[in-house]
Design a protein around this nucleic acid. Structure first.
Lengths: 215, 215
DNA sequence: ATTTTTTTTAATCATTTGTTTAAATTATTT
DNA sequence: AAATAATTTAAACAAATGATTAAAAAAAAT
């Protein structure tokens, strides 16, 4: 009856469990997924889940942590990158996120749900988040606004708009497809289109507010 | 052991159950809510839930249907309204939605989750959705684009952008508050601000694309 | 080859959970 | 007031569910 310290061994079954869990948790959420579902999807014996991960909750936390990392790494990289101007950073950010969500379409809703239900757990694990507000990117924007080269706009609006335009179409894809009658393939192409369009739109949004300032 | 046909009687306990269920389902989703949670929150005996609603699932469906109605009524009203120009309709739509989500902050995530998990169930119940594509509002936009008075832009982008800018900040409020350090009260004020700003931003987005066309 | 350790399996446990039952209570009708 | 119907309650059931156990099988070490 030798228990094992998780890290050290065979990735095969451990990985099988993790990827099955990732798939299911991401698609259905913690409560809706049963340990037996994971075992079956992974093609392993039920007891192995607890053997490798101790509990459903611990397994979920691992999946969630990795998901959060995927989600945040892109922002963090761009937000803390010190080279390039605002426009360039936005382009890279948009592009890398659209690629990420094209690969993992369930990721954003999964994460937003988790944050929605456990708002306090979230920043504890990922210190990166607090860093965003102090990042060079946000500073860059704040400075540009103060200097007048970019019109004033509350930073929340700016970040909210940018994230909205990137993320929401992935969260709402079934609805938007139903409403517009667009096919899966078309939808994907339209998302690719947005890589070029969102940066332009964001720029246009910023210019809009100059009316308010110059009045 | 007298069973009853639901509609006819005392609203008191039935309503207590419904509002408790609405609160919990909306906040935590179907699987995470236990019938005993609902009973406790409603301050009623567990068996009454089944007495009045037959099953947890039936109760959930009622809550979901009402939520979908709340969610869609606003669009449908504006989208099928035949008076007023595009700009006016957008203003009304934005304003009514921001009010709706300010009152029911958990509503959008709840509905998006449901659609995400049961994409087929959704349009079956709410015929309104299919109607949106054929609505006078969408026609109006399509005509305006063709006539050149508004630049060409795939209708999906238009609807996606509009919904994104309205809805996403409510879905992501905990995250955005953490990132920007904005308080609950400030956040609410900023959402109110968006009533005026989003229509301008949408207009600005539309104009952006004219470069592509006029080139 | 033998021993030891690690991994896998089938069976089982203890709770939890959705639902039902039968009796008690309350309200309504006659 | 008596009879009937509707509502509420406490208790219980059956199935589902997360977790554990002890033994078997496989792999690694000696």
């Amino acid at each position: 009856m030798a228990k094992k310290i998780i890290e050290t061994k065979d990735p095969s079954t451990e990985e099988k469990i993790k990827s099955a869990a990732q798939l299911l948790f991401t698609k259905k959420g913690f409560a809706a997924v049963k340990t037996r579902d994971i075992a079956e999807a992974a093609g392993i014996n039920l007891a192995l889940l607890n053997y490798y991960f101790r509990s459903k909750e611990k397994l979920f936390n691992i999946i969630m942590e990795e998901s959060l990392l995927k989600f945040i790494k892109g922002v963090a990289d761009q937000f803390n990158n010190n080279t390039g101007d605002i426009a360039e950073k936005i382009e890279k950010l948009v592009s890398s996120y659209i690629d990420l969500f094209s690969r993992y379409p369930d990721l954003p809703l999964f994460i937003l749900n988790e944050i929605h239900q456990h708002p306090d757990k979230f920043p504890a694990k990922i210190e990166t988040v607090a860093g965003i507000a102090r990042s060079s990117f946000v500073k860059q924007i704040r400075d540009a606004m103060k200097s007048g080269s970019v019109p004033e706009l509350h930073i929340l609006h700016f970040i909210a708009n940018l994230m909205s335009l990137i993320i929401f179409p992935f969260i709402a894809s079934p609805m938007l497809m139903k409403i517009t009658g667009v096919s899966q393939k078309q939808y994907h192409e339209l998302m690719q289109e947005r890589k070029k369009m969102i940066p332009k739109w964001i720029k246009a949004i910023l210019k809009t507010n100059s009316k308010i300032k110059s009045r």
